[in-house]
Simulated assay, not measured.
Amino acid sequence: MTNREELRHDWTKEDLLAIYNKPLLQLVYEAAGIHRAWHKADEIQLSTLLSVKTGGCPEDCSYCGQAARYHTDIKVQDLLPKETVLAHAKKAKENGSSRFCMAAAWREVRDNRDFDSIIEMVKGVNKLGLEVCCTLGMLTENQAKRLKEAGLYAYNHNLDTSAEYYEKIISTRKFDNRINTINNVRKAGITVCSGGIIGLGESKEDRISMLLTLANMEKHPESVPINALARVKGTPLQNNPKADIWDMVRMVATARIAMPDTMIRLSAGRMDMTEPEQAWCFMAGANSIFSGERETLLVTPNPGISEDLQMLQNLGLKLL
């Protein structure tokens, strides 16, 4: 963990494209070196993601099976009781997770009893000694403040894709709405988790544009999830081709080089990745994976915890 250089926030699109387009082995070698300068290369953070309120969302995100307007097999579930959520959090900690994220399929947070319940959940998970994260949709400055006071460590609000491609994927909110929520999270002193999805039909330039937005923020997000599209039957993107593994590796490596201090999280889509393919992503700088109970990540298939622990053992990696 030596040879650190000062973080950059003045990247150009040409800079990042040049990195992304390097010969693959050279790119991974460079990213691996930077990863080792800033992080312990044999450590992976295990994070657990729980859907505390599922389905019925009014948004039209083309990839999401929780949108009410699409005909999927996902069952709508009201907000879980606090006791149920805390039981899941305790089990996650026993399984080796150090971060617990609660997701609600809302367009935005409303100041009502449900949000009051989320506040109590955050307090409870925080007392367990876990990094507590939420992803609840758009958030006002005051709501972010309440979450911070309750002990929230991180807030996830993905950009999903570039500003230029965004309207082809979502029409019910603007790209700037996402930036505003991230700014509100920052003002409250909560760490930021924000990344994107590969395989939406976007171009290479769109992927780089999304990374550019993150890498040139005044403070880099502490976490950047790199997701492969989980093709949910009944959504407009159900027939998209599987995200190419080398595109995933290039995204992980480019994110690692541009944002050395950030946790790069290998997130959705791992079910379609082999163990060697995931190993390439770890070599390129990914240092976190998400687990979900019942072998799901929110509402899509995900490797089970025992399978993940075996993979980490096979690769000589240990939990952070």
Rank of each mutant, 00 (worst) to 15 (best):
C134H: 02
D160I: 13
Q77D: 12
D244K: 12
E164R: 15
H9F: 14
D78K: 09
M102N: 01
G151N: 07
E222R: 12
V76F: 05
G292P: 02
D244S: 14
E202G: 05
L25P: 01
P241V: 03
S209V: 00
K127V: 13
L128Q: 09
S117I: 01
Y165C: 04
S98H: 11
L79Q: 03
E202V: 02
T254L: 12
T296S: 06
M138I: 02
K219W: 08
G201P: 05
A41R: 11
G269D: 05
P23R: 01
R69E: 13
D160L: 08
W246K: 11
T274Q: 06
V192L: 13
I118E: 06
L130H: 10
S51E: 01
T235A: 10
D272R: 11
L297M: 01
P236I: 04
R294I: 08
G137L: 00
E141Q: 10
Q313G: 11
I169C: 11
L136K: 03
A18L: 10
Y165S: 01
R265K: 15
S209G: 09
Y29V: 10
L211P: 07
V52F: 00
K82Y: 00
R294T: 11
L7Y: 02
S203M: 10
E295H: 07
A68H: 10
A230K: 10
V76P: 06
E149G: 05
E141R: 12
P236L: 07
V299C: 13
K82R: 14
N158Y: 08
D244M: 09
L315Y: 03
N177T: 04
S209P: 02
K145Q: 15
I44K: 02
A268H: 07
A154E: 13
E14F: 12
E43G: 03
E218D: 15
K93G: 01
F115M: 04
E307L: 11
P260T: 07
N126T: 15
A144R: 00
A188S: 09
T2Y: 11
W11G: 04
P81M: 00
N156W: 03
P260C: 09
Q143F: 06
I19T: 09
N3D: 14
I198R: 08
N112R: 08
T161N: 12
